[in-house]
Nucleic acid binder design. Structure first.
Length: 183
DNA sequence: CGCGTTTGACCTGCGC
DNA sequence: GCGCAGGTCAAACGCG
């Protein structure tokens, strides 16, 4: 029986997500985050059993845990990795190990910016190649905190917003308790 | 005035 | 090197 990790266990929780995903991390956080087990928990947390089942059927006839284990193995490879066998809306990307913890959400939303409890200052906007939608860059304004996030619309389905967090906050979520208590 | 956004310039890594 | 793509800087600007 799997126990879902608690919301506050994640370094950069986003109270607004309704559709996953992706995750990734770092070597120097590996130990403290308990390595791949941590990511497995994230997957279990972000994906419902139904999603895991779908992932399984998409990736041949193997079990979800086997497939996920493979995804984590890919994690240590040098090149970014995209599994196209998963149907488009369920696409999972595994980026190469980074120096910072990275967590991405893909959310169906009309709003570009969502209140995730942190204060952000926009510091850049860039048009990315092969996407009609610009990418926006934000940095956490909390003193000494170097967490960044990128926000852009899904190039394949602009009704989705992709938010990528990078880094771990060195402080608490200002209004996290409010979000949790309202669940 | 304080703080956040805008936006073109600048920087950097990578492939050729 | 050179050029491209993506990420960041920072001066100007906007707004309470």
């Amino acid at each position: 029986m799997k126990t879902a990790p608690q919301f506050q266990d994640f370094p950069n929780p986003n109270p607004n997500f309704e559709d996953q995903f992706a995750y990734t991390t770092t070597h120097h956080h590996h130990d403290q985050l308990n390595g791949s087990k941590y990511f497995r928990d994230i997957f279990n947390y972000l994906m419902s059993d139904e999603d895991l089942e779908e992932l399984t059927s998409d990736l041949h006839s193997r079990t979800a845990s086997e497939n996920i284990a493979d995804l984590f193995d890919q994690f240590s490879s040098s090149a970014p990795f995209v599994d196209h066998n998963i149907k488009r809306r369920r696409k999972v990307k595994i980026y190469k190990a980074h120096e910072e913890f990275r967590l991405a959400f893909r959310t169906r939303s009309d709003l570009e910016v969502m209140d995730d409890g942190f204060k952000w200052r926009k510091y850049g906007k860039k048009k990315v190649k092969s996407s009609p939608n610009p990418r926006n860059y934000y940095k956490c304004t909390s003193e000494g905190c170097s967490v960044k996030k990128r926000v852009e619309r899904d190039r394949e389905d602009s009704s989705y917003v992709i938010t990528t967090y990078e880094g771990v906050h060195n402080h608490e979520t200002p209004s996290l308790n409010i979000h949790i208590s309202s669940l």
